[in-house]
Structure formats: C-alpha cells, structure tokens
Simulated assay, not measured.
Amino acid sequence: MKINIGISETSTRKVVDELSKLLADEFMLFTKTKNAHWNVEGIGFHGLHAFFEGQFIQIDEIVDRIAERIRSLGHFSLASLKDFLQHARLSETIQGDHSAVSFIKNLSNDHQSLIITLRANIDLFATEYKDYGSSDFLTSLIAEHEKMAWMLSAHLNDKLTSI
C-alpha cells in the first residue's frame, strides 16, 4: 500500500535513493568499527576494545533507524551485503595496520565524510523535495556522528600518538 504523506513519488524516490546510500555507508562504518573492535592491537587494547564496541552499538542503532525511515516512506531498505557494497560511498578497506592510531584515523575520517554528506542533504531534502521529516532526521544524525568523531579524535590527542 502506497502512503500519502504530502511528498511526490518523484521526491520520495530521490530521498530514498540518498537514504539508501547513507544506509550502505553506515553499514560499512559499522563493519569497520567491528573490525577495529575485534582486531585492534597494542597498548590500551582493553579500553579501546570496549570503546569501539560502544561505537558499533551506536552505529547499529543508526543503521536500524535509517532502514526504518526508508520503510516509513513506503520503500524497501537495502538488506544484503552485495547491495551495501554497490551503494556505499565509503571504502570497506582500513588503511594501515591493526594499531589503534590506524583504526582511529580511518574511522574518524569516515565519520567526517558522513557528516559532510549529511550536511549537504539536509537543505536538499527540505527545500527541493519538501521532506522536512527526513531533513530533520539527518540533522539528528549529524550530532551523533560529530560526537563519535570527536571521541575518536580525542584519542589521537592523547599519548597514543607518541607510541
């Protein structure tokens, strides 16, 4: 059943297309954060293991909310690894070794990329597509990613950079 929420089907499709790319990027970031959680090595391992776990749990919740937003717009969400790989703008590759610094730099850069993408779509969703709900939704995601990026970057300003 098609829903009527006052947004044209053309606009809804464009919003869903962009949300699908975001969903794929978030799933990619979730996977990379899991990788860091499982494979980080070095001094401070235990604390970083727990830190990365907290972040992947938060990203998993974001993934779920994006998929549900897509469904609330009357479309189906991407749900396969193949689809995520085809639609993601973020690379699945971690550059560097399994050190905390490598993981933190990679994840921080990905969060920053997502923030820039989110920021670019907020006005587009509201002004061009008249989807104020999705625009507001993206605004809430920016704040979450800004905090996660800050938490990651704060580790680089600590003693880890001298190790």
Rank of each mutant, 00 (worst) to 15 (best):
M1R: 10
M1F: 05
K2H: 09
I3D: 11
I3W: 04
N4E: 15
I7M: 02
S8H: 11
S8N: 10
E9F: 06
E9S: 15
E9I: 15
T10G: 00
T10D: 14
K14I: 12
V15S: 02
V15R: 04
V15W: 01
V15H: 00
V16K: 08
E18P: 06
E18W: 07
S20L: 07
K21H: 14
L22N: 01
L23I: 08
L23G: 03
D25N: 15
D25S: 11
E26W: 06
F27K: 04
F30G: 01
T31P: 01
T31V: 14
A36H: 02
W38H: 01
W38I: 08
E41N: 10
G42N: 08
I43D: 01
G44T: 10
F45Y: 14
G47K: 06
L48F: 15
H49M: 09
A50P: 10
A50D: 13
F51T: 12
F51H: 10
F52E: 05
F52R: 06
E53M: 05
G54F: 09
Q55S: 03
Q55L: 15
I57C: 02
I59Q: 07
I59S: 06
I59W: 05
D60T: 03
D60S: 14
I62R: 00
I62K: 04
D64R: 09
R65N: 15
R65Y: 09
I66D: 05
A67M: 07
A67F: 06
A67L: 11
E68W: 11
R71Q: 12
R71I: 15
R71N: 13
H75E: 15
F76Q: 13
L78Q: 01
L78K: 05
L81A: 12
D83P: 08
F84W: 08
Q86C: 04
Q86W: 08
H87D: 06
R89I: 01
S91C: 05
I94D: 03
I94T: 13
Q95W: 01
G96T: 05
G96W: 00
D97A: 12
D97Y: 03
H98W: 05
V101E: 07
S102Q: 00
I104D: 02
I104K: 05
I104G: 00
K105D: 00
K105R: 14
K105F: 04
N106V: 06
L107C: 05
L107F: 08
N109W: 02
N109R: 09
N109Y: 01
H111W: 00
Q112S: 06
S113F: 10
S113L: 11
S113T: 15
L114Q: 07
L114C: 04
I115F: 00
I116F: 03
I116H: 00
T117Q: 10
L118V: 03
L118C: 03
R119P: 06
A120R: 12
D123M: 03
D123C: 02
F125T: 07
F125I: 13
A126N: 02
E128K: 11
Y129G: 03
D131I: 12
Y132V: 15
G133S: 12
S134R: 01
D136L: 09
F137K: 00
T139I: 08
S140V: 10
I142H: 04
I142K: 00
A143V: 14
E144I: 14
H145K: 11
A149R: 09
W150P: 13
M151T: 09
M151A: 11
M151G: 09
L152Q: 09
L152A: 04
L152F: 10
S153K: 12
S153W: 03
H155F: 02
N157W: 03
N157I: 11
N157L: 06
K159Q: 09
T161V: 13
I163V: 08
